[in-house]
Design a protein around this nucleic acid. Structure first.
Lengths: 249, 249
DNA sequence: ACAAAGTTAAATGTCTGACAATTAGAATAT
DNA sequence: ATATTCTAATTGTCAGACATTTAACTTTGT
């Protein structure tokens, strides 16, 4: 195989891309060893630093892993959800915090997908997930809970709900969506009344799932979606008012 | 700020992680310039190669971009969907092709989310997306179409459907799911009857969306989901039979 | 013969120093 | 004023060295 690199982009980018394609199209199989850094230098006619920068790019995407020692080298990595999660969360969080996506848009997507999980959860939900949901609801009823702990418990509740669907792809996509929204949710101050409303909706959802009644759970989740948007709206209005006041002074 | 790096993991990994955290927690803002490579060497007490490998890791995740020249450097990148798409597709494709996820699981997740899009599409779908769906249906009716072209048109149809929901997050997640399934879909040989069934379901979906009747569209999509699983099953059985035959000889 | 210890070789990880290429801005010439 | 040239800062690339890790091989002791 011969390789000709352009002059435009960085060499390490082009080399990483060439190797990525070999992995994608099956020229390099899972756990197969890539040529050593020295061999890659010869193949692409570049220095070792350049090759290494290319390999680090691939490692950052979990496409390869490296191992030191005599039989070491770079190996095609069997990418797992454990590898993919953190990256997905990083990406989602930044898409949200850098205002590429509005909270409303994220909310709509998140609850649309979560509602899609409900029928599956109602059908399959295991006792341990059900127990987690009940336990988190119980926590949320405690009065001494800080807003942040309340939010964390909220996340735990919804994670258990979607895990009940028993589909790792849905869990992977939704869990990252929910986690990436947490920083924004943490800015909400929950009144006693807010919490009561949320807890009652959580109960409604849990009851629906437990009894295999997807329609009830869906209704609860739908109401919760609306309520979340309302709360977020309040925060935004408060902030706008505060900004105006500050401008006056 | 002082930095103490452990001995366990690679230095470039730790440096990349430290900078990633600074970006995530807001210490480094969008478009802000990172210290130059030389300054990072001083700060972390490592060589330039190590700093560069760390920066390449971050660049591979679109967290930073670099610019050469007098006022150049590494800048915090405002991550966009255009940046995130390809990475998501790479990850999804490999999760699927490396058997970390079964086709059934991927299918279930994909159609669950797609069905979640239907009510939104029925409400908001714009004429251009509608036109795309109609055009792709028309293409799929042509008899001379290769299986691969038929699949490509299928992808285009569904992409238009989900874009009709007008939610970029849903588009981002679903489009990557659909594209990552394409290699497997391409292995299916569609009979004339298969195509007719699919086209009629596509029409049903399009009609439902066009008339704002989400229930009809959802029914069509649901039937399509079942049919897709059936076809995939057939392929798997054929392959199993062929493997048995090969073993006999 | 077998097991423990030491040796070796291959590979990645890190460091140093140099030069090339690019780019904005300052200095200069017209 | 405008165009050109120069300069300095910064990233991109290269070459070579040494450090570290690891598995396999070799030696040695029993």
């Amino acid at each position: 195989m011969k390789y000709t690199l352009n002059q435009g982009r960085e060499l390490s980018t082009q080399i990483a891309e060439a190797i990525r394609i070999e992995i994608m199209n099956g020229s390099l199989l899972v756990d197969e060893r890539l040529p050593s850094e020295g061999e890659l230098c010869d193949r692409f006619q570049v220095s070792r630093s350049t090759v290494r920068e290319a390999l680090k790019r691939l490692a950052a995407q979990s496409l390869i892993r490296t191992q030191r020692g005599a039989t070491g080298g770079a190996f095609v990595n069997r990418i797992s959800f454990e590898d993919a999660y953190p990256q997905q969360i990083t990406t989602s969080t930044l898409l949200l915090s850098m205002n590429e996506v509005s909270f409303e848009t994220a909310c709509e997507a998140r609850f649309a997908v979560e509602r899609a999980c409900v029928p599956l959860s109602a059908e399959r939900c295991q006792p341990d997930h059900m127990a987690t949901m009940r336990a988190e609801i119980h926590r949320q009823e405690q009065s001494g809970l800080s807003d942040e702990s309340f939010c964390a418990s909220d996340v735990a509740f919804h994670k258990a709900l979607i895990e009940g669907a028993g589909n790792p792809v849905l869990t992977y996509q939704l869990a990252s969506a929910i986690e990436s929204m947490q920083p924004l949710m943490n800015m909400i101050t929950f009144s006693k009344r807010d919490r009561a409303t949320i807890v009652s909706l959580h109960s409604k959802i849990a009851d629906g799932i437990a009894s295999g009644n997807a329609a009830v759970a869906d209704e609860g989740l739908s109401e919760l979606a609306d309520y979340t948007v309302t709360l977020a709206d309040q925060v935004r209005q408060q902030r706008a008012t505060r900004a105006q006041d500050a401008a006056k002074i």
